[in-house]
């Protein structure tokens, strides 16, 4: 049985007809919580484009019901309904209910800020001309490395300053935030914000202000609302019997 996510037992999430591998999607409740599930084929779940998008689509649909949901990571398959009940819904009933309370009425917005590398370096050097002088005067390999390392530190500081500015703008509208490591050298910020549904407009306005503050060359991008993937990022342990 493929598991997409967990909702409250009394929720009535809107589910698409099909999910992973084109199979039907349903719901299985036990106590206070319910799992959004689908039939699963034998063997590992293939992380194909179609399947990845299907997992995401099922959870988007639930979120847009609107309905609170704890998204599972892609690829969690339990042997059968009994195992799903016993080892997920019963064994972790308290943790799941507590997590649902944490994200109650909230969604995740994922924000990235990126900028061409040259513009980043220009801004860093503008804040500290010595960095440029050191790069220019560097004689030999070691001095060039040292100059570059100082510039890299400046870039890291600049990223922190962007993160601080983003927090200043978006923080008041969010209840929690997590920063991820940038994926490319051009990324200045990659962060997820947990936001009450009613404050999404506030975040949008804050993003506009952030974009304006960062100038023409910076690109501010937000994806969402999405299920709170970053805020339920935890591994449930097997219950120890002994």
């Amino acid at each position: 049985m493929y598991v997409y996510g967990v909702v409250r037992a009394d929720a009535e999430p809107r589910l698409p007809d099909t999910g992973i591998d084109g199979r039907p999607v349903g719901r299985l409740a036990e106590g206070e919580v319910a799992a959004v599930v689908g039939d699963a084929a034998e063997g590992p779940v293939r992380a194909s484009r179609r399947n990845l998008m299907a997992h995401s689509r099922v959870l988007q649909s639930v979120l847009e019901t609107p309905c609170d949901v704890l998204p599972m990571r892609f690829g969690v398959v339990m042997p059968d309904a009994a195992a799903l009940r016993d080892e997920l819904l019963v064994a972790h009933a308290a943790e799941l209910a507590a997590q649902l309370d944490v994200v109650s009425g909230k969604v995740e917005l994922d924000v990235t800020v990126s900028c061409p590398e040259e513009a980043i370096l220009r801004a860093v050097v503008a804040g500290n001309r010595q960095l440029a002088d050191a790069a220019r005067q560097a004689a030999g390999h070691h001095q060039r490395i040292a100059a570059g390392e100082a510039i890299a530190a400046g870039v890291a500081d600049y990223r922190e300053a962007v993160a601080a500015r983003a927090l200043e703008e978006l923080g008041p509208f969010a209840t929690d935030a997590v920063a991820d490591e940038p994926h490319t050298d051009e990324e200045l910020l990659r962060a997820a914000f947990l936001v009450e549904r009613g404050r999404i407009d506030g975040v949008d306005a804050a993003l506009e202000r952030l974009g304006a503050a960062l100038g023409d060359e910076a690109r501010v991008r937000s994806v969402g609302p999405v299920p709170p993937y970053h805020f339920v990022d935890l591994a449930l342990q097997e219950r120890a019997w002994a």
Partner: peptide, 18 residues
């Protein structure tokens, strides 16, 4: 991919991804 392969609830022993 960023979201669902890396993030979210997981029961390690039942994670089966190819």
């Amino acid at each position: 991919i960023d979201l669902i392969l890396d993030k979210g609830l997981v029961i390690d022993v039942y994670l089966r991804v190819s």
